[in-house]
Amino acid sequence: MKRTRGEKIFNWINIALLVALAFLSLYPFIYVFSMSLSTAAEANRDGLHLYPRDISFDAYKAVFTNPAIWIGYVNAIFRTVVGTALTVVVTCLCAYPLSKKHLPGRRPILFAMLITMLFQGGLVPMYLLINGIGLIDSLWVYVLPVLTSAFNIILVKNFFEAIPESLEEAACIDGAGPWRTLFQIYVPLSKPILATVALWTAVMHWNMWFDALLYINDENKLVLQMFLRRIVVENSTQLIEQGLVNPDVTQFTAETIKAATVVVTILPMLALYPFVQRYFVKGIMVGGVKG
C-alpha cells in the first residue's frame, strides 16, 4: 500500500509517541527491578535507579528461601487458572441467552444484573454469607464469589449480538441445539472478546488479596498477593496513621526485599500476556465469518 507524505510523517510521530509512552510505562518496573538487585544501602540512594548499582542478590535469596512465597505461587496459579476458566464458561452461558432479543424478561434480568454492579451488601453480610455456606478456609472462596460479573456478561452479550443471525439459523437447520450453537459457532467467533475477558479476569485473580485477608486463616492457603501485601503494606503509613501499627516496635522491611517481591509477583503476568495477545491480531473474525 502506498503512503502519502503526511501519513509517513504521522507514522514517525506515532512511533516516537509510543516509544515515549512505553518508556514511561516501563519506568516503575525498571525502578523496582534495579532496587531489587541492589544492596540495602544502594536502595537508599537519592536518584532515579535506572539500572542496578552495587549489585546484590540478597533480596532474591531472602524472598525465595521463604516457603510462603512458593505456597502463594501455587494457590495464586490455582485461583487464576480455575477462576478464569469458570468465568469464561459461565459468562458465555449467561451472555448467549441474553443476546437474544426475544428472550422473555430480558430487560429486567439485565437491569437486575446492573444493580449487582453498583450495590454491594458490604463486608459484614458478605462475611456472614461466606461463613454460613462454609467457604471459610476453602480454596473455592477465591473462585465462587467472583464467578462472573455483570460487566463481563454485558460485554460478551454485546459481542454476541453483533454475530449475524443467519449463522445461527443455518446451524439450526443443520439440527444443532443451543448448546452446540453456542460452543461451535458463537464461542469460536468471539475469541477476541473472550480473550479480553479471560485476560481481565486472570489479572483480577492474580491481583486480588482482600478475600484472602478476610476469609483465609490457614497460612497454607494464602495467595501470593497476600504475602506481597504483608511485606509492602503492613508497616506503611496507612496502618501507622490508623494506630494499628506502632512504628517504634515494627521493623521496616528493607526496600530491596519489597522490590524483589514485587518483581517476583509481576513476572508471571508479564509472561502470560504474549500468549493472549495473538487473539487480538486482526483478521481472525473475518476469516471465521467467511469460513
Binding site: L213, L214, V233, E234, L239, L244, V245
Partner: peptide
C-alpha cells in the same frame, strides 16, 4: 492473627459472625 490489617478487617467480621475467642488481643 497474623497481621495488623487483619486486626482491622478480619477480626471484627469473625466477631460479627459470633465467633468470639475466649481470651484475645483486640488490636488497639
Amino acid at each position: 492473627i497474623v497481621s495488623g490489617e487483619s486486626y482491622q478487617t478480619k477480626l471484627p467480621m469473625q466477631l460479627a459472625a459470633g465467633d468470639v475467642p475466649d481470651v484475645f488481643n483486640p488490636g488497639n
